Simulated assay, not measured.
Amino acid sequence: MSAPNNSYDPVEVTPLHPDEVARMREEALAAIAGAADLAGLKEVRLAHAGDRAPLALANREIGALPPAARADAGKRVGGARRDVAEALKTRQAELEEERDARVLVEESVDVTLPWGRAPRGARHPLTTIAERMADIFVGMGFEIAEGPEVEAEWFNFDALNFLPDHPARTMQDTFFVEGPDGADSGLVLRTHTSPVQVRSLLDREPPVYVVVPGRTFRTDELDATHSPVFHQLEGLVVDEGITLAHLRGAIDAFVTRMFGEGLKTRFRPSYFPFTEPSAEVDMECFVCRGASVGNPDASCRTCGSEGWIEIGGCGVVNPRVLTAAGVDTERYSGWAFGIGVERTLMFAHGVRDMHDMVEGDVRFTSAFGMEI
């Protein structure tokens, strides 16, 4: 049996030698002091205080020592590791304080500077004025009605007394929707809001008082006064004892509310397949009120010195339209009108070019603000 290893000297284990432990400690402290930022300190922590750090590896060697030698080696290595941990904690606090001070300077915000540099949005004036126009008739007791923009030909033409050879059915006026394999789908992009007249009469029992704001489509070229996509406000009344006098009164009330007090209106004979008799509606120029007529010294750009402005078409609902919708023409009569929203906007606000309404320039819409 061999004798105890009483002559074993722990200093012969190189990682546990006092000079080596001191060297590892000083190297770690120097690295900690040299860390310039928190990211650099994190790397130092991994290198000198992590599981694979020199002092951590030296600590593992203690278990191989005889019991009598372990206490002294443990104190030596443990003291060095505590010094490194304390240095890391102190340097962490210093670097965090430096970072916070730097952020206060670099990311400071001057709250005295003007705010709101991002421009405010604005509703499109066509939306605003269409709602204003509809609200005027809602105030008279009308209700809002809507219909599809892709419409059946029967609603768009046949039910409104457009004969099969009517020019409006040709490609010069109408966008036709192509069916599968180029077949006739029987659908069009509605050319006016008048199909909603028939839909309203089919959905409701008279009396009917509806107003229809909506978008319509025709094969027009975009220029200063025309657009292939435009908006109309359609009105329809069907009730017992309805006459043109009621229509004239509603138009007069609309003109007064929209353009001002005291403006006259007039009807000029016209033709629409879905009304009989039919008329074009003119109102007195709200700018010159007729004073520019025959007066070269006081010309008016709004009405072209004619004294009158055309605002839409109207008439008594054709009995054929009522019959198509299943309405008793012996008992009920009605009238309808259509007013261009773009035209109203141009008159009310002096807009001269249709391009301004459709090109999406925020400088145009922002001038009208956020009126609700």
Rank of each mutant, 00 (worst) to 15 (best):
Ala3Asn: 07
Ala3Gln: 10
Pro4Asp: 07
Ser7Cys: 05
Asp9Thr: 10
Thr14Glu: 08
Pro15Cys: 08
Pro15Val: 09
Ala22Trp: 03
Ala22Val: 03
Ala22Arg: 10
Met24Gly: 00
Arg25Met: 04
Arg25Thr: 06
Glu26Arg: 05
Ala36Ser: 09
Ala39Met: 12
Arg45Glu: 15
Arg45Lys: 15
Leu46Phe: 04
His48Asn: 05
Ala49Asn: 15
Asp51Gly: 07
Asp51Met: 12
Arg52Cys: 00
Ala53Ser: 15
Asn59Arg: 12
Pro67Ala: 15
Ala69Arg: 07
Ala71Ser: 11
Asp72Ile: 07
Gly74Asn: 15
Lys75Ala: 15
Val77Asn: 03
Ala85Arg: 14
Ala85Asp: 15
Ala87Ser: 12
Leu88Gln: 06
Arg91Val: 04
Glu97Thr: 11
Ser108Tyr: 09
Val109Ala: 02
Asp110Gln: 04
Asp110Cys: 03
Thr112Lys: 09
Pro114Trp: 01
Ala118Trp: 08
Ile129His: 02
Met133Ile: 01
Ala134Tyr: 01
Asp135Tyr: 02
Gly141Leu: 00
Glu149Thr: 03
Ala152Trp: 10
Ala159Ile: 07
Ala159Trp: 07
Pro167Trp: 07
Thr174Gly: 06
Gly179Tyr: 06
Pro180His: 10
Thr191Asn: 11
Pro195Phe: 00
Arg199Phe: 05
Glu205Leu: 11
Pro207Met: 12
Pro207Thr: 11
Val208Ser: 13
Val210Cys: 08
Arg215His: 12
Thr225Ser: 13
Ser227Thr: 15
Val229Cys: 13
Val229Arg: 11
Val229Phe: 12
Phe230Trp: 15
Gln232Met: 03
Leu236Trp: 09
Gly241Ala: 11
Thr243His: 14
Thr243Val: 13
Ala245His: 11
His246Gln: 15
Leu247Ile: 10
Ala250Ser: 08
Ala253Leu: 05
Val255Lys: 12
Phe259Ala: 06
Gly262Val: 13
Arg268Ser: 05
Pro269Gln: 07
Ser270Ala: 14
Phe272Leu: 12
Ala279Ser: 14
Phe286Leu: 10
Val287Ala: 08
Val287Met: 01
Gly290Thr: 01
Ala291Tyr: 01
Ser292Pro: 01
Asn295Pro: 09
Ala298Asp: 13
Gly304Phe: 10
Glu306Asp: 04
Asn318Lys: 02
Leu322His: 04
Ala324Arg: 05
Ala325Trp: 02
Gly326Gln: 03
Val327His: 03
Val327Glu: 06
Asp328Phe: 02
Tyr332Leu: 07
Ser333Trp: 08
Trp335Arg: 10
Gly338Phe: 02
Gly340Arg: 11
Val341Lys: 01
Leu345Pro: 05
His349Asn: 09
Asp356Val: 09
Val362Phe: 15
Arg363Ile: 06
Glu371Val: 00
Glu371Phe: 00
